[in-house]
Design a protein around this nucleic acid. Structure first.
Lengths: 212, 212
DNA sequence: CGAGTACTTGAGGCACCTCAAGTTTTGTGG
DNA sequence: CCACAAAACTTGAGGTGCCTCAAGTACTCG
């Protein structure tokens, strides 16, 4: 079953008991959690991701999942998915692996918010999104569409929106990125990666598709 | 096979290709990653944990695993583990679930380093360790043994060791904890949890063992 | 019992924060 | 397709939580 989402529409919320899984077909989703008076974004999902695969074994959600920009998701009932996995040990391992890569990304995010400066951390987020979008063919000519606003970046990185603004200005001043409207361009991917301390290893991408 | 570890002994390092998994039988392990000139601790493991289960599907490690204090681990070859999992879909789901709980803990750590103050974040770490140690019977009378030093707490929380020291003094001053030598005691679990914004939900513990 | 490691304390500094006001862009109903 | 409101972005200025450096004290273990 398919479901079309407008901007900032909740798929599910903390405390919900999920009975189905979601696959993101088009657009973006973020997972977030309210911590005191702040909102912490835990993950940004790109097309091809299964953002709530963990509900198969941990049905009660410990965070919210919300669309960013117009999006489209596929919905798969748990019962259906379980039948498929029972029938195919190979698919079981594919899905398990998917959740393990996700965990590796969470680990890198701990490094981003814990050990990197605001500048490096924001640069790292852009590198990560570019690499993941590239893997599904959504990076064209070093550019991609990104409906996240500066407050989202702030919530993802644990810094203030004002500081995100100044950080992006610095990245633009250094001619590392351009960001106009919804369109982000990596002007110097190598230098940006160097500043961010980015290494794509943790994404455990199997193969890179040929460049367009 | 069993392996006995002394303090600060590496089990495996970033870049290694693992051919076996580990189960922590006794003591503590931390997973960490070097980020620029800092070390970020990604996870603290307690007895019963499988800290490198992900190597089954992602053999190349993206971080180090090191003992803290004298420890004892069991070593299970991948081939052996895969045979067991092939034979038992139930066990497959149990192990998968284990990695999903671990991912939930990573998410909470993102909140800790991203959205909580130093005081709340350190308090949260203590609450989490107490809850996890309680689940395996290693919390006695609100006390547990913890071989982590202040620099480790700093590396886990993305703050300086000096500030960890001052934070612990504040927690002691507020009569929330005592920490003498290796022994940590929760003097007021409720208040500590409140300060930390701690809710054990994310640990997805199935059942709590009866208190000793 | 000596040497290394961990802990503590003080003091000055800075990366990032909050508040606040203005400008630009985006979305929406008439 | 315009008018208007709301949201997003930008800029300035003062503040603070945590940092770094540095020195001294107290463990711990061989």
């Amino acid at each position: 079953m398919e479901r079309v989402l407008t901007n900032r529409e909740a798929i599910c919320q903390e405390g919900d008991a999920a009975s189905h899984c979601t696959v993101l077909l088009d657009g973006f989703l973020v997972r977030s959690k309210i911590v005191g008076d702040r909102e912490q974004i835990l993950a940004v999902h790109v097309p091809g991701d299964f953002p709530d695969l963990q509900t198969l074994h941990l049905p009660v959600l410990d965070h919210d999942i919300v669309s960013v920009g117009p999006s489209r998701v596929g919905v798969i009932p748990h019962a259906h998915l379980k039948a498929i996995l029972t029938a195919s040990p190979t698919l079981t391992h594919v899905f398990w692996r998917e959740t393990l890569v996700e965990a590796a990304i969470f680990r890198e995010w701990v490094c981003n918010v814990g050990a990197r400066s605001a500048l490096a951390s924001v640069a790292h987020l852009i590198c990560e999104l570019a690499a993941r979008l590239d893997a599904v063919g959504l990076l064209q000519d070093h550019s991609f569409q990104l409906p996240l606003v500066q407050q989202d970046i702030a919530n993802a990185r644990g810094i203030s929106a004002v500081h995100v603004n100044r950080t992006l200005q610095e990245l633009r001043k250094r001619k590392l990125i351009s960001w106009e409207g919804r369109s982000v361009t990596l002007l110097d991917r190598k230098e940006l990666g160097k500043l961010a301390g980015f290494s794509g290893e943790y994404l455990h991408q199997r193969a890179r598709p040929a460049a367009a």
